[in-house]
Amino acid sequence: MEDKAFKKILLKSEVKTSERFTDDLMKRLETRKAERPTSIQIALRPALWGLVTVEMAVLALFFLVPMTSFTVFNWIHLGKTHLMVGLIFLFILGINHMLRLSQKVESYNQLVKQ
């Protein structure tokens, strides 16, 4: 078969996309945009990890220091147990937030790298 004739045949080998292809793609991009971590979130990540670490250290300190209550400016008087529960709650909240943010950043980086 001649090259010209072969080209004529191959020009008919084009496969068409479905009608909703572009709309589906743009919807998918919109969803991704909403899920994408913001630059502020990415920038704050190391700072947040730092806060969680400090909180861990404070928790350990409270656990180790032999005292039953904690007084701030002579008018806030907190029991050691209440303070511990509050700090543990904040610690879990912080860790949960950090893990979700890390997951978001990782999945975004993975797609960009591919």
């Binding site: 996309t17 292809f21 589906d24 793609l25 998918r28 991009l29 991704r32 797609l111 960009v112 591919q114």
Partner: peptide, 12 residues
């Protein structure tokens, strides 16, 4: 595959 490819094109 093409949907994935165009998402990459947009992101990159």
């Amino acid at each position: 595959v093409l949907q994935d490819a165009f998402v990459k094109v947009y992101e990159k």
